[in-house]
Every structure is written in structure tokens, then in C-alpha cells.
């Protein structure tokens, strides 16, 4: 009897430590499925962030490095420049990539590093206790914007995919979401495509994945997915912002 769904080989059997309903787990699985489908697990090196995904090295069944906060793209650059034939990815949250690590991600893209970045945007700092992220929506309440993010004092959400898509070295830039089964499937395709772009040697690839934080949003897992679809997607539109010229666009 063929399995229609089973645990990807590129995940270890260790249970995730994430909160109930946190979509980090779905995104981990999509990354692992892409690694499996491309049959590159044994030549893949992942770099995990500081933040909720700090223990990702326990979950991905491939060589893994835990990087300093925001520095994963620089660490991945070091790995890839030493081992150009390996598949190197970073897995980063919005605080890690879009706040403290903005310089590292922008310049990894500018150099066209042949790495793949999975950017998990849930509009909040999860691990440290629900503080404002660079991607927090205007009006969104967090522990450091208790009355809602105010443009005057706290600025506006950073649209990372759009920003990175202005960089020539960033060959593949897309934004996907995981708030419905259909979107999960499309997200999986985009992640796989990002790894394929790396394998083709064309340059830097990044997939921004809109994700939830039921705990710090103060919503049930189901409500959180609904909130994502209704509030985040309008601010962070889904789609491919940059594709290799030869590639055909896919739906996101």
C-alpha cells in the first residue's frame, strides 16, 4: 500500500518544541520535503537562527549549524564558498532576518550567494515574548506596542520580499503562506523551486513564508490562520517577485 503522506526523511524523529498550532512545523516539513524530492539530503547544510527556530538543528536530518542572531546568511556564505557543490539553506524568522540581520540578508542577496533562505514572517517576536517585529502590522498589539503599532513612533512593516526583489543577485524571490491546505501546497512548490534555483547555480533564492504565532497573537490556531489570511496577506501580498528569466512563474 503506497503511503500518500509520511514523515520526510530530511526530518529527524524528534518532536517539535513549538507551541500548539504554530506553523513553523508545517514550514519545516515543506523544507524537508523539498530536500527529499531533490535527493540532496546528504549534501545539504542548514543554518538555523536565533529565535523560535533556534533548535531547528535537532529537527532537520542533515548537517546543521546554529548561527548568531541574524548572521545566518553570512555563515551560509562561508559554508557555500568553501563547499560550492553543497546545498546550503538558512531558516530565519522576522526578528533574525528583518531586524538584526538586515545587512547580512541584503548583502548575501547582493553578492548573489548561491544559497536558499526560508524567511518565516509571523509579524511578531515569538521566543522573547511577543514583542514588535519589523513586520508587525500597523495597529497590531504586541508586548512592546501595547496600544498597537503606531506609524509615528514605531514605523511601518518592512516588506522583505519586495525589498530583496530589487537586488540583481536575488534570482528567485517569492512570498507564500500556509494559512490553508491550498496555500501549504503552493508554499511547498515555491520552496522546492528556490532549492532548484540554487542547484542551477543562478544565484540567491529566498521564500518568505507568512506564518502564525497563536500564542503571542492571543488567538486559537484556527483563528490565527484566519487572521493571517485576512490581515497579513493584504499587507504582504503573495506571489513571485523575481524569477530566473528562463523560468515560468508559478502561483503562490
Amino acid at each position: 500500500m503506497p503511503k500518500t503522506f509520511q514523515r520526510p526523511q530530511a526530518l529527524t524523529d524528534k518532536p517539535f518544541h513549538y507551541c500548539p498550532g504554530c506553523t513553523h512545523g508545517i514550514i519545516h516539513r515543506l523544507v524537508a520535503e523539498a530536500v527529499d524530492q531533490l535527493a540532496v539530503r546528504k549534501k545539504t547544510v542548514g543554518v538555523c537562527p536565533v529565535g523560535c527556530a533556534v533548535f531547528a538543528y535537532d529537527y532537520f536530518n542533515c548537517d546543521m549549524i546554529q548561527a548568531a542572531h541574524g548572521r545566518a546568511p553570512a555563515v551560509a556564505t562561508g559554508v557555500k564558498r568553501v563547499l560550492p557543490d553543497r546545498v546550503v539553506f538558512t531558516y530565519q524568522g522576522d526578528g533574525d532576518l528583518a531586524a538584526i540581520g538586515t545587512a547580512e540578508i541584503v548583502h548575501a542577496a547582493a553578492r548573489g550567494e548561491k544559497i536558499t533562505t526560508i524567511f518565516v514572517n509571523n509579524a511578531i517576536y515569538g521566543m522573547t515574548g511577543g514583542q514588535m517585529a519589523p513586520t508587525t502590522l500597523l495597529g497590531q498589539k504586541t508586548t512592546t506596542t501595547p496600544h498597537g503599532r503606531d506609524r509615528e513612533t514605531a514605523g511601518s512593516p518592512l516588506r522583505v520580499a519586495e525589498m530583496l526583489s530589487t537586488i540583481d543577485g536575488a534570482v528567485y524571490v517569492s512570498r507564500v503562506s500556509v494559512h490553508s491546505p491550498r496555500h501549504v501546497r503552493l508554499a511547498g512548490r515555491a520552496i522546492k523551486k528556490a532549492f532548484e534555483v540554487q542547484l542551477s547555480g543562478q544565484g540567491f533564492s529566498v521564500v518568505e513564508v507568512l506564518s502564525t504565532c497563536p500564542t503571542n497573537w492571543g488567538l486559537s490556531p484556527r483563528e490565527a490562520l484566519k487572521w493571517l489570511g485576512e490581515n497579513m496577506v493584504p499587507v504582504f501580498p503573495l506571489g513571485e517577485f523575481r524569477t530566473p528569466s528562463a523560468e515560468e512563474a508559478i502561483e503562490c
Binding site: 500500500m1 503506497p2 503511503k3 500518500t4 503522506f5 509520511q6 514523515r7 526530518l11 518532536p15 517539535f16 513549538y18 500548539p20 498550532g21 504554530c22 506553523t23 513553523h24 512545523g25 508545517i26 516539513r29 491546505p181 501549504v184 501546497r185 490556531p221
Partner: peptide
């Protein structure tokens, strides 16, 4: 397989015994 796709903790495995996979 939709339940498995949406499960954040890879709790669910799905066997299929006929027809095309989903």
C-alpha cells in the same frame, strides 16, 4: 492527506489504497 499537510507536528501518516494520490 489534507489533515497531514496542515498538521504542524507531523503527527499524521496517510495510507492510500486506490486511485491517484491526492
Amino acid at each position: 492527506g489534507i489533515c497531514a499537510w496542515m498538521c504542524p507536528d507531523v503527527v499524521i501518516e496517510v495510507d492510500w489504497n486506490g486511485g491517484k494520490p491526492p
